[in-house]
Write a protein that binds this DNA or RNA. Sequence first.
RNA 1: GGCGCGUUCGUCUAGUGGCUUAGGACACCGCCCUCUCAAGGCGGGGAUCACGGGUUCGAAUCCCGUACGCGCUACCA
Length: 486
Amino acid sequence: MINEAPRVRFAPSPTGYLHVGGLRTALYNYLFAKHNNGKFILRIEDTDRNRYVESAVDNLIKALKWAGLQYDEGPDIGGIFEPYIQSQRLEIYKKHTDELIAKGEAYYCFCTPERLKNLKEEQEKKKLPQTKYDKHCLNLSTSEIENNLSNKIPYVVRLNVLPDQKIIFCDAIRNRVEFDSNNVDDQVLIKSDGYPTYHLANVVDDHLMKITHVIRGEEWISSTPKHVLLYDAFGWERPTFAHLPLLLNPDRSKLSKRQGDVAVEEYRDKGYLKEALINFVALLGWNAGDDREFYYLNELVEAFSLERVNKSGAVFDIVKLNSLNAEHLRKKPNEEILEMLRARIQETEFKIQNYSDEFLLMIIEAMKERVSFVHEFIDNCKYFYEAPKEYEKKAIEKNWKPETPMQLRKLRDAFSRLENPTKEDYEHALAKVSEELVIVKGKLIHPLRFAVSGQSTGPGVFDLLFILGKEEVIKRIDAAFENIKN
RNA sequence: GGCGCGUUCGUCUAGUGGCUUAGGACACCGCCCUCUCAAGGCGGGGAUCACGGGUUCGAAUCCCGUACGCGCUACCA
């Protein structure tokens, strides 16, 4: 196993969407695989028929691909160990379970849900430290079992956990972890519907698919003893386990839907860049040991190592995500932003307009350092797309003094005399008017921006004028005389 | 309750026995730049390294307890 290229898997259960915690697990698996020239595999763990969700697998795959985490083997692309969907591997689990039963490592259990429920209640009443199955069916004779089987009495298959064993395993992130087998229940391996539980399916598949490293969330650490026992029962070599710290809500509980968005799809739809989400989520529990915080996916591959993953949970801080999004957006070429902006425009009332690339590119250049999201190239500067319908209330007083209309009229007239004005032409014209009026340029600049955009903030005013064009500028100044009442 | 895992600024984190008066980032505040807002630059406040014992000449760093938090405790993953 030493020096062999690692094989890792992301094994989500299809619940309808990709959880950001799942994204991070997938990412770490991907990074580890790619860093070590190994393989990254997607396997669908759909052994719970009660939780079956239509098209969940498609969503999962779509979200993973959107994020750029391309796997080497998976349900839609196949691979040498297909199928990669557990519900299509039922015979495999059956075969391996039979083997375990033959070895005495597992046994049939015909207990009814009622008996199980009573057993549990009794144990709770006795204030036993833990509730466990009492191995009742372990004592069934061969003929009893055969009889039950031929009478089609529903059954499950349980793992036969021997008492008083120390179960020790190594975790790449937490080092040595030890459990007492007395605390491990005779876990159900095959459910009465014939489907395997996660514990069985995961071990069988990981072995068959030659998975070398099991990198998964910390919530699995408590059930790892069962998995270890299974590897031993089959006589298989154990993979290396690496249990990742949890992603947390602001109140430090496990990241959940109740306290904000958890679906990758929601972040995508809200306008987060995949680069930012990946970068952000990578840093939640890992760092290279230096001060660097800005990474692209390929750079993460380069820098990643399991040894530098933290042990403690990390709060998902949306504010920091936002700032990373802004940073990634600023670094993007304008042409790329243009594509995204056009897509966004299609979602607004401006979709019927026919904006030129040149025009939108100017907006992007002017606004790039003032936005955090692509949609803010629209939302934060509607005035580029339409004349202001209203004027920022609290800014009127500051920007619209009694003498303002007179001064702006002079400016308007100066502008109207310009021919195909450049930015500089506007600037010179304004300088000249301010000289004539014997006022500082600011006295003209701020009311001008306000008249033209309806806002008191925004890009440099001469950029604003140039982008809008002379005709529109004059129209808007005139409109302002009508609309702004002080 | 039992078992397990964890605990450095509000948050993400650096730190693997002396380089640490604990460093960086986000957020917050101030200054510079400046036509505004940003971006950028500079600076500030903010962590008795959960607590208590040890080990050591010396501990955020090693050991032991305690507290707190979280996870698991299903015929769910």
